[in-house]
């Protein structure tokens, strides 16, 4: 597969299915053909280099079928590079013409935490590192409590970017604030500067599946994670590049998250697609701690006319299990 992001964009849709297939194939092949040094992966495009050997290899297809192929069809393949992320330098540019925004409808959130689960899963995060949190908020004693999901707010005036001594965390043209953890020196000034407790630090060698270490790092996937560096919610740029929604948005069963492009003036939660500016107006949207002047890219819709009553039955449990 080509490493150029442009190329990848073009072929993304066609490629993603194949890519998943290749990944699975790679894993299975790794298991089937013992002696892990050089991995071989089934190629569905190219002619076999050698004539059929007669040696059959069992592989698992994405839909769960076990198939047998001749070993001649197995082609030596370098390790899968990354999901879709560009190199650290390329990642600094952003998707041209886009200005990503998120709208979080607090009236729909019942703390189902599906968003968080999807986030943990796709970013391969252990339980103690949470990039997305759902806070139980209560502004005053007499006002109603509500759930407030909080990803990175991807501020337009990001305090974290301002203080970074080495330009390891940066603001992109498309509004995303990302981190290059191959450059980060681990001073943690950005963590002190962020007013939203967004950033987490790899205090030790991060727990992650072994195959991750074989992957080439990209700030767009934030994988593999690295000891002694800062990380945070990245709005899933690998998904955005494919024209897909971030994992938290698609995982939410209640349509809490709207995601979209302010330049197109469109946001969607997967079910309904709305005019971004009109939604902000209609629902009296606000940004968290506007007075700080950080200009977040994440807007909140107030928790009025709620879909669900506020139930905090397992709140404590959730806190302690983390």
């Amino acid at each position: 597969m080509s490493q150029k992001p442009d190329d990848q964009n073009k072929h993304d849709d066609a490629a993603s299915g194949r890519r998943n297939f290749l990944k699975l194939g790679f894993l299975t092949a790794g298991l089937t053909i013992a002696g892990g040094g050089i991995q071989k992966v089934l190629s569905d495009q190219e002619e076999p280099a050698n004539k059929e050997t007669g040696e059959k290899v069992k592989l698992l297809t994405p839909d769960g079928k076990l198939v047998e192929v001749d070993s001649a069809y197995l082609k030596e393949h370098s390790h899968p590079k990354h999901h879709c992320g560009a190199s650290p330098d390329e990642s600094r540019v952003g998707v041209p013409g886009k200005k990503y925004v998120m709208v979080i409808d607090l009236s729909r959130c019942k703390n189902a935490l599906k968003c968080q689960k999807a986030c943990q899963k796709h970013h391969l995060l252990p339980a103690q590192d949470k990039w997305l949190k759902v806070y139980k908020m209560q502004d005053t004693e007499d006002t109603a409590p509500y759930w407030m999901p909080k990803p990175c707010l991807h501020c337009d005036k990001p305090p974290c970017v301002k203080v970074c001594p080495v330009d390891a965390t940066f603001k992109r043209e498309d509004g995303l604030v990302l981190i290059d953890n191959e450059r980060c020196i681990g001073c943690r000034f950005c963590m002190a500067a962020c007013p939203y407790s967004t950033r987490t630090f790899n205090w030790e060698e991060p727990q992650q599946p072994e195959y991750v270490n074989e992957m080439v790092y990209s700030p767009e996937t934030s994988t593999p994670r690295k000891k002694g560096t800062v990380e945070k919610c990245d709005f899933c740029p690998d998904m955005l590049k494919q024209g897909k929604l971030p994992h938290c948005v698609t995982a939410c069963p209640n349509g809490v998250y709207y995601f979209g492009d302010a330049n197109e003036d469109t946001v969607t939660n997967g079910d309904e697609t709305l005019r971004f500016k009109q939604l902000l107006k209609d629902k009296a949207a606000y940004r968290y701690m506007e007075s700080l002047g950080t200009e977040p890219s994440v807007y909140y819709l107030p928790p009025v006319n709620r879909l669900f009553p506020f139930v905090d039955s397992n709140g404590e449990e959730k806190e302690s299990d983390s």
């Binding site: 970074c164 001594p165 080495v166 330009d167 390891a168 450059r183 980060c184 020196i185 681990g186 001073c187 943690r188 630090f201 790899n202 000891k227 002694g228 560096t229 800062v230």
Partner: peptide
């Protein structure tokens, strides 16, 4: 206090 003292050189290469 640095998480990555091995990258201290970045202060000179990429200093802001």
């Amino acid at each position: 206090d640095m998480g990555r003292p091995d990258r201290i050189i970045n202060m000179f290469i990429h200093g802001r």
